[in-house]
Structure formats: structure tokens, C-alpha cells
Design a protein around this nucleic acid. Structure first.
Lengths: 329, 329
DNA sequence: CAGAGTTGTGCAAAGGTTTTCAGACTACGT
DNA sequence: ACGTAGTCTGAAAACCTTTGCACAACTCTG
């Protein structure tokens, strides 16, 4: 027997409509009645039934968040950002994890779509066509990917990447490897593109060495190939892969950075926990999440104005112990 | 203009009631009508409006999950377990993160409580009184903590801890330190208790060295104190703290395990990524999450029968590189 | 002081589903 | 042939809010 709007109305001696207004559009009420209602609300501990409200307004007060893999320490950071900003706006957030399973994404979006006002789609792996399709059904903002005019927040790695390359060049490196991430990852393509251009600009040879699952094990698995490639420095798709490299290098007695320098992307918590600490391009995780829900809120408020909004944050080079002077061949 | 139950009814030539039954209690229908309805559902792409359904059934089809800090790699594991099991049961999950802020927990439970059928409360830091209070208002199951008869899933560390102590004793350690976690953490109290008893049983002196925030920085901060304590082995409240110790030890030129052995709790992903890899007591993260929602589902189905259910999983000692023979003093 | 505009509140409909109750029909037993 | 039990479906109420519309009471204006 939960307390309903009628109970409050009776207690305050007004009609249910008035109670409703006291909570949603207080400025329409006489200050005196407003106070009386609010006192009754307090006393009875009334909370509007969200289902009933949602039924009529068509809004749920929820947003959805879909990430590829919560186990990758990059994502908890953005989840936190999303949560924070969402709560500030009195939204609750549904979280779903696709386990890096591109096929699950579209289904998940559609399933979640019914229960939320909008969705924040983080680093989606699905095809552009699928994204366009689901974006047509549900308000969506994307994180770490850009397709068409769908609102998105991305991270500009241009400047930081050029810095990183300059850093390596200054240390004497002339041959640099790139260990790629998932083919269907926009970030991966972007990182490769920017690296290529930066390398070309600096007169460095960039060699794409392999493609791996963006996990620790992927880095471990590919480490020997990297060594065989004869480069003096290697950039990994992300920190997890970079840590995998470090791990296998250590196991093989290859010393970092004396024998080879390693650079990652993301700046996850663990990048500075290992020794040598990992030189990496830091991506602002929480701000990305926050910006995502801000865009989404704009989009919900005014789909036309915010229909193709874009936000771009920037990466930052963190030089740590894993990069050093090139081994002179 | 979303498709409603009436549209389906019209398309199938039946009443809305029949459509509803086709979806919720198909056995009440003539197979032929059931099929006809389901075909119409498919064709129109109908999905029941959850708000409307919830309004009348009083159920939301959602569960809440509250964790202290998503940034601690232990928790994403249990979140994944919760997600998986919840989706299997066609529930969606609301996630909230308290940032290790005990005061926020009760509020969060109450806020979330209105929007979900039940809550999985992971490693709560709030007081027993508060827990009892909120458990009275909303169906709750707890993870990693036990209070009263509230349904819970905990991890039995007894056997594994005794093994760990035996392992240390076999390596010649006689003085072992414990770096404690949050005072208001049940796990912390439990770990200390079990360690004490295991140490006593094995004739080892257990020294409680300090209390820290259960994070990497906490371990770093306390490492020197550990060294000054003159123990040959140290057990940390969790892996993050243990990794912090390793990091600071390395920085000070203290070699692990030659100079001091280190043991953690949790077995987070990174425990095996560092070198030396961390010896630790592995807690089953995903199974804990899964068990949590199973208990919750039971509780929702039959509050009386499942009112005080309990599940106990067990920990497992993972011996890795961070433990070795005691330095002979 | 009449009329127009403004302000504050209530009535009732609407939103989409589930569920109780009753009705229609079938099949069966006598 | 008729009553009865049983099976399947439909009508309508109920869940709780929000909101368009109407109404009443004021406040101005001329």
C-alpha cells in the first residue's frame, strides 16, 4: 500500500492535479498551496510512481550506457563520468556490457532503447549501417567514434600523437611499430591514421605489425613478433596490449626501454603501476563520459538543435619509464 | 506512434486481453490463436510498454547494483556476473557507484529502490543499522558481507587462507604483516580474523601493520612502514594495495620475493600482469555476481522461503612469483 | 461599474497493460 | 435432450500520473 498522489491530495486538502503541479510546475501554484502540498509530501514520504509518470509523459528518466568490456580499465572511468553527470540531471543509468561482441550491440541497443530516453554508446564495434539504423530508432550519442551526423564525443589525438612521435624521434628512434587493435574499432583506424601522418611528417618509418584483441593476452601473444620486426620502439593500440608486451618482454629478458621503447594509449590506472611505468597517450575518461551525457541531454531536450552536436576532447602525452634512447644498432 | 497491444489485437483479430495472455500466459490460449497472435506480434514488431506493464503489475523488470568503486578491478568482474545472470532472466540492471562513500549508500539504495524490484548491494560500507533499515524497505541481497538474516553471498576464505599461511610457513616465514583495508569493510574484518586464526594455528606471528584506503596509492603510501616493521612477508587487504607495495618496494630497491614476500586478495586481472606476478587469494568475481542475482530472483519470487538464503563460494590460493623463501635474518 | 484579461484550481480523459469476471461455446454424462 | 463442467475469449476495471479544458475568482482598464 504505497502512498499515492491521492493520499497527498487528501492530506493537503487539494486535488491530485494540484499535487502534480506542485511537483512538476510549482510556479503555477499559489505559494501558500504549494507549501501546503509540499509539507504533505514530506510527511507522507510520497514519491511519484515513475511507471505512471512515464506512461503519460513518454519519458523514463533513464539513460542507457553500452560498453564493449567493463574489464578493460579504460571503461570504468567513462562509466563513472556518465554516472556522475546523469545523477546530477536526475537520471539513472542502465549499464550493459557487450563483451567485445559486435553482434550483440544492435540487439542490446534495441532492447535497452525501450526502457530509456536515450543511449550513450561507448566505442561501438558494429558497422556504420547498423549504427545509423539504431540511431534512427533511439536517441543516441556515441563515444570514441564518429559516423555521419550522429552526436558524438571523440578525443583528438593529433597533437599528442605528434608529440609522442617527436619524443621518440628525439630519442633516436627511426623505425616504429604499431600493434593494431580490433579492425572494426574506429579508434584503431584513427590511431593508425594519425600515427602514419605524424610518422611521415617526422621522417620515421611506421610499420603495422599485427592485429590483436585489445587485451593483455593479445599483447603477450604478439610480443615476439614485435621483437622479430626489428623496430626500436613500438606503439600499442592500448595500454592493456602495451602491458602485455612489457610482460612478455620481461619474460624474455628484453629490457625496456634499453632494448625497446613502448608506448600505449588510454592511460589506465595500471600504466603507472608497472615498472617501468608506461609512457602513454592519456585519454580523459571521466570527461568523455560526462560530455556524452551532456550531449544526450541536449539531444533529448531539443532533437533539432542538438541533432548533430559534436564534442572533442584532447589527449595528452604522459612520458614515463617505458621510453628511452634508441638502442644503437 | 509506437505499436500498442491494440494494434496487435486488431491485426490478429482478437481482443487486447488475448494478446496479453499470448505473451504472459500462453498456456491459457488455443494453440491456433496463440500462433496467430504471435505472428502479428512479429510482423508489427510489438514490444510491450514496460511502464504500462509495471504500473499494473508493480514490477519493473529491473534490478539495481551498487558497488563501492568501479575503478577497483575487482568490481567490474562481479558487475559482469550480475549483468549476465540478470539478462538471462530478462532483467535489466541499474548500476551505481558510491565512490567508497559510505554515507551515499543508503540514499542511493532508497533512490534506486523505487525503480527496481530489488537491489544487489556489493561490499556495502554502511553501518549494520542502516543496512537493516534499507533492507526493510526494499528487497536486498548483499555481496561480501553478512548482517543478520539478510540474504547474502560471501566467500569463504578459511581454507585458502590456511593454505596461504602454510605456504608462507613452508617458505620459512615466521613473522607476517597484514596491511588492513577500510575499518567499515566486513571483508577486511573477516580477512583479519581468519588470518589471525590461521597464523595462530601455524605458530606464526601476525602483525597488523596499518590501515589504508584499498587502492594502489594506499599500498604505495604504507610500503615503507611495512619495511620498517621487520617482517619477512606481508599480506595486503587486496591486490591493489599489494601492487602498491610492490611498486614502492621496487622503487626502493627492495626485491620481491628475495627480501620480502607479498600476498594479496582478489586476483584481479593485473595480479598476473606485474613482475613478479602477485601471489594472491583468488575470489570468484563473476560467480559472486551471478549468485547474487540468483538469490535476488528467489527472494522476489518467494520472500518467505528465500528470506534469509545464503550462498558461500570459496577462495583459491594462486601461488605466483611474489612469494619465496624467507630472507634468513 | 461592466468587460476583458489573468490567475489558481479542479474535473476528467488519456496513456498501455494486466486481470477479474462473466459469457460463449464445446463436450460429456445421464 | 438437457444440465454441467470445462475451455477459451472478451469487456471492463484498475494501476497512478499528467495535462487540456473549463470554471471561478480576481485585477485591471476605460
Amino acid at each position: 500500500m504505497p502512498v499515492t498522489i491521492k493520499d497527498v491530495a487528501r492530506a493537503a486538502g487539494v486535488s491530485p492535479s494540484t499535487v502534480s503541479r506542485a511537483l512538476t510546475t510549482p510556479q503555477l501554484l499559489l505559494p501558500e498551496t504549494r507549501d501546503r502540498v509540499q509539507r504533505a509530501v514530506q510527511e507522507l514520504g510520497y514519491h511519484p510512481n515513475r511507471a505512471a509518470r512515464g506512461l503519460i509523459t513518454g519519458r523514463t528518466g533513464n539513460i542507457g550506457l553500452i560498453v564493449p568490456d567493463l574489464t578493460n580499465p579504460f571503461f570504468p572511468g567513462v562509466v563513472k563520468g556518465v554516472q556522475e553527470r546523469a545523477h546530477e540531471a536526475e537520471y539513472s543509468v542502465f549499464l550493459a556490457d557487450t563483451d567485445e561482441h559486435a553482434a550483440a550491440e544492435a540487439d542490446l541497443v534495441r532492447a535497452l532503447g525501450k526502457q530509456v530516453d536515450g543511449i550513450v554508446l561507448c566505442s561501438p564495434r558494429m558497422s556504420e549501417a547498423e549504427i545509423r539504423a539504431v540511431a534512427g530508432e533511439t536517441p543516441i550519442v556515441m563515444l570514441n567514434r564518429r559516423v555521419g551526423r550522429i552526436p558524438s564525443v571523440t578525443i583528438d589525438i593529433g597533437e599528442a600523437t605528434r608529440q609522442a612521435v617527436a619524443h621518440l624521434v628525439a630519442l633516436g628512434h627511426r623505425g616504429v611499430g604499431y600493434v593494431a587493435g580490433p579492425r572494426n574499432s574506429w579508434s584503431n583506424r584513427e590511431r593508425l591514421r594519425v600515427l602514419r601522418s605524424a610518422a611521415a611528417g617526422a621522417g620515421v618509418e611506421l610499420r603495422e605489425i599485427a592485429t590483436v584483441a585489445p587485451r593483455f593476452a593479445g599483447g603477450v601473444a604478439v610480443a615476439d613478433v614485435v621483437l622479430a620486426a626489428g623496430v626500436t620502439a613500438v606503439v600499442a593500440y592500448n595500454d592493456l596490449v602495451a602491458l602485455g608486451l612489457l610482460n612478455r618482454f620481461a619474460a624474455r629478458g628484453v629490457s625496456v626501454p634499453a632494448d625497446i621503447s613502448v608506448v600505449g594509449f588510454d592511460d589506465i590506472l595500471f600504466a603507472e603501476m608497472v615498472s617501468p611505468a608506461l609512457t602513454t597517450l592519456a585519454l580523459p575518461q571521466e570527461p568523455t563520459g560526462r560530455a556524452g551525457v551532456e550531449l544526450l541531454l541536449d539531444l533529448l531536450e531539443d532533437p533539432d538543435r542538438a541533432g548533430s552536436a559534436r564534442r572533442e576532447l584532447s589527449a595528452q602525452l604522459m612520458v614515463r619509464g617505458s621510453t628511452g634512447p634508441a638502442r644503437t644498432a
